[in-house]
Design a protein around this nucleic acid. Structure first.
Lengths: 192, 192
DNA sequence: GTGTTTATGTGATGCAGGTCACTTTGAGAC
DNA sequence: GTCTCAAAGTGACCTGCATCACATAAACAC
């Protein structure tokens, strides 16, 4: 399935667009291919685009002063990634986005998203719902982080996104869960 | 300042409405007075409304199987509170909302929010931005929870919301930070 | 292929913060 | 006022997870 069709079906789940409207929307996206390990947004950059994943897997992450990495999100096909704080506020990025595997993405400029939201009511609706889902997911993750131990969070993650197990190295899973890679490794030593 | 004016100015920060449009919007809100300690949404309820705070302070929180409380949000004047997951998905509430102090609020039914978003493009814009801000704030809190220790998170919270110090008891602050009340109490024993 | 980097496992040790138990202070209710 | 209950402080003890150190093993570059 081509990029156009993937995006069209993705948006159609939340918003109703005519074919002409979708053509107009799609004309604001640009396609990019990235290699495994390649950076898409680096801390300090201006974050001007958000990215819709067609193929592969991205991660968005923060690096603290001790160079420790914390993963905010893994982005699989039909997910969106960016430094949303910087994107909306116009500030420099503090979040990085890069490629865990080779990836195909569509980029949308911040200005164009706002333009599309102004022009087409249904696009504003679409982006409202996309953010809604992100907000609710972030709140659930906050509660899980406060309430559950490392093992529980690990099993929760694998149950929710089984595909991750095969694609994402354990050190990155640890950086998502908020535990050290050693602790994650020890969770299942000698079979559970 | 009356309820109408507070809401009007709050919305005007993000969206442009004519007076007629605002009158229409405002007609969907209902005003309520609550007493300190009173519950607004309880786990198991249908969550059908979201609440805009005019006066006082609410909290939204989760209670786990061990009856331990985790606070998702304090809601001060011009903040919104609800179980947004249940509200949007139609599921039963898992989050509670109640009053830390006596409070004056405006309620908006889920159905009416969606109706207003359909009728008035600018209202869809308003709610998109409201959720944006919530999403970004939740992501920052996730990072802080993974990256910083209890003392750091406490100082961060007080710096961001100094008003909380006088209004909100320490055991609730602890439930927000994700530490025990004993640990929070010990942070500043014998003056720092 | 060979050398280099990245991912993973595992032992030893330390500490932040949890839990339990008890005390003190303060705010309402009457 | 007095009684009750919630909030807050503190000691003693325990534990989940971090950190450091080193050993494999697998992936990648050339």
């Amino acid at each position: 399935m081509d990029a156009r069709e993937i995006l069209k079906q993705h948006i159609a789940k939340t918003a109703t667009l005519t074919d002409e409207e979708f053509d107009h929307v799609f004309s604001h996206f640009a396609r990019h291919s990235f290699k495994k390990g390649q950076a898409i947004i680096s801390a300090g950059d201006k974050a001007e685009h958000e990215y819709f994943v067609l193929e592969g897997c991205l991660k968005s992450f923060y690096i603290n002063d001790d160079l420790k990495m914390f993963i905010l999100q893994f982005a699989m096909p039909t997910w969106w990634a960016s430094d949303f704080d910087a994107l909306y506020s116009g500030a420099r990025a503090t979040i990085n986005v890069d490629c865990i595997t080779d990836a195909e993405v569509l980029s949308l400029h911040n200005t164009d998203r706002e333009k599309l939201c102004r022009e087409i009511h249904q696009m504003e609706h679409f982006f409202r719902w996309r953010t809604n889902r992100g907000y609710v997911a972030a709140q659930k993750r906050l509660l899980s982080l406060m309430n559950n131990d490392a093992r529980h969070r690990y099993e929760e993650l694998l149950q929710m996104y089984p595909q991750l197990y095969n694609i994402v190295p354990k050190n990155l899973i640890a950086a998502y869960l908020g535990v050290s890679r050693e602790t994650l490794s020890r969770l299942y030593q000698h079979g559970k």
